[in-house]
Amino acid sequence: MNDVLGALDGAKAEFYRRVAAPYEDAKIADSGDVYPSLRHALFSGSWFRSLEPAPTG
Rank of each mutant, 00 (worst) to 15 (best):
M1N: 11
M1C: 10
M1H: 11
N2I: 00
N2R: 03
N2Q: 03
D3Q: 11
D3M: 06
D3E: 11
D3I: 00
V4L: 15
L5N: 13
L5E: 13
G6H: 10
G6I: 03
G6A: 09
A7F: 08
L8E: 04
L8F: 13
L8V: 05
D9V: 02
D9R: 14
G10D: 14
G10Q: 11
A11N: 05
A11T: 01
A11D: 06
K12Y: 08
K12N: 08
E14R: 11
E14Q: 13
E14K: 08
F15P: 04
F15K: 09
Y16D: 12
Y16P: 00
Y16H: 13
Y16C: 06
Y16A: 10
R17C: 05
R18M: 10
R18E: 14
R18C: 08
R18V: 14
V19K: 12
V19L: 09
A21V: 04
A21P: 07
P22C: 05
Y23P: 00
E24T: 08
E24N: 14
E24F: 15
K27S: 06
K27Q: 11
K27I: 03
K27Y: 09
I28D: 14
I28V: 15
D30S: 13
D30A: 14
S31M: 04
S31E: 05
S31F: 04
S31K: 13
G32E: 03
V34M: 08
V34G: 06
V34Y: 08
V34C: 06
V34A: 12
Y35F: 15
Y35C: 07
P36W: 03
P36K: 03
S37L: 07
S37I: 00
S37G: 08
R39K: 15
R39G: 09
H40I: 00
H40D: 02
H40E: 03
A41W: 03
L42W: 07
L42K: 04
F43G: 06
F43E: 07
F43M: 04
S44C: 04
G45C: 02
G45M: 02
S46C: 03
S46Q: 10
S46L: 03
S46D: 07
S46M: 05
W47R: 07
F48K: 14
F48T: 04
F48H: 12
F48G: 15
F48W: 12
F48D: 13
F48S: 13
R49M: 07
R49G: 08
S50H: 03
S50P: 02
L51Q: 14
L51G: 08
L51I: 03
L51A: 10
E52V: 02
P53H: 09
P53K: 11
A54V: 04
A54P: 05
A54K: 12
G57Y: 08
